[in-house]
């Protein structure tokens, strides 16, 4: 049962990573695997197969020998599974078939490393140890022809780098999954349009603005302008981390659309960094009515609507509620 689930999760990962026949073919080309190499690998096949257990032990002994490797080796059950996978990996490395199925098998180990939090640099170091011991065995097997042995080992090394490529990509992909999920969550955040006073709306924007979300924001703002008969809108972008030309364009469109419906827009909360990057990018927002912070924007909006906020505190009689 668990095997079935594991199998399918590897397949899902392969699909998400777009690990197709074509992309695997591309990966083979990137490491420079040629038909010659396949013949050479076949030549050293017996040497590797004879000592599979020894090579696997080199890998795991290295891991258990260093602090960073113990996240895996301290977990007996997972280590057993990893050892098993590593053995079949070594057998497959000299198997001669390096298609999609081969790449997919590498994913399971990658997922396992990712789950225990094995650092990639530690994995690569251990894998290097393993390759070195294979290299030694290959060299010893044909002492009379060292150049031939070296060429065969280099052919196998291409497969090894192919494997590292797949595993590194898979671990990074898994790690970035969290980031992708969070980005989706931010994108899905709703954007409320709040009525602060009669005819005054507040539109706080938080998170990432893309075309889809910009459309939703504009849409809900325009509907709210009509429903509340708003004349002034304060759009606060404090929560927008970065504004590039695309985002600026979206904001401009929202402002222009609101203007067509007879509402003027005050943009607030452009941070110093954002303002500087807009200037550096040469994006002209001078047609927008911008005010430093939300408080200033609300003051301005209230003034435009004819409100005057007065403190009820006698000590500050008649003074505006806001300082300055």
């Amino acid at each position: 049962m668990t095997d079935l689930v594991k199998e399918s999760s590897t397949q899902i990962l392969a699909r998400e990573m777009a690990l197709t026949e074509q992309s695997v073919e591309r990966r083979r080309r990137i490491v420079g695997l040629e038909p010659d190499d396949l013949a050479r690998i076949a030549g050293i096949r017996e040497v590797v197969l004879a000592q599979v257990d020894h090579f696997a032990s080199v890998f795991f002994d290295y891991l258990s020998g260093i602090e960073e490797g113990r996240v895996l080796t301290n977990n007996r059950a997972l280590t057993e599974r990893a050892r098993e996978l590593k053995r079949s990996h070594l057998i497959a490395m000299v198997g001669g078939d390096y298609g999609r199925a081969y790449a997919e098998q590498r994913l399971e180990l990658a997922v396992l490393y990712g789950r225990v939090g094995l650092e990639l640099r530690v994995f690569i170091a251990a894998f290097h140890r393993l390759l070195r011991s294979i290299g030694e065995a290959v060299m010893k097997s044909t002492p009379q022809a060292p150049l031939e042995a070296f060429a065969s080992f280099m052919a196998l090394k291409k497969i090894a780098f192919f494997d590292i490529g797949v595993i590194v990509d898979a671990v990074v992909f898994e790690r970035e999954r969290v980031i992708r999920q969070q980005q989706d969550a931010i994108r899905e955040l709703s954007t409320p349009v709040l009525q602060v006073r009669a005819r005054l709306l507040l539109l706080p924007i938080i998170g990432v603005i893309d075309t889809h979300r910009a459309r939703l924001i504009t849409d809900s703002l325009l509907k709210a302008i009509r429903a509340n008969r708003a004349k002034v809108v304060v759009m606060d972008v404090t929560g927008v981390a970065t504004i590039d030309s695309k985002v600026a364009n979206h904001l401009m469109q929202t402002v222009t659309a609101a203007k067509l419906m007879g509402a003027s827009v005050i943009v607030t909360g452009l941070s110093a960094e954002v303002a500087q990057s807009l200037v550096a990018l040469g994006i002209d927002l001078t047609t927008l009515n911008t005010i430093g912070d939300l408080q200033g924007g609300m003051d301005e909006a209230e003034r435009a609507l004819g409100y005057r906020v007065v403190s009820m505190d006698p000590r500050r009689d008649g003074a505006p509620l806001s300082p300055g």
Binding site: T218, L222, K223, Q253, T254, A257, L260, G262
Partner: peptide, 15 residues
């Protein structure tokens, strides 16, 4: 003064 531009119309014009 132009009055009564609908939300959908305003959006389309901007686009």
């Amino acid at each position: 003064v132009v009055v009564g531009i609908q939300p959908e119309v305003a959006f389309a014009m901007v686009q």
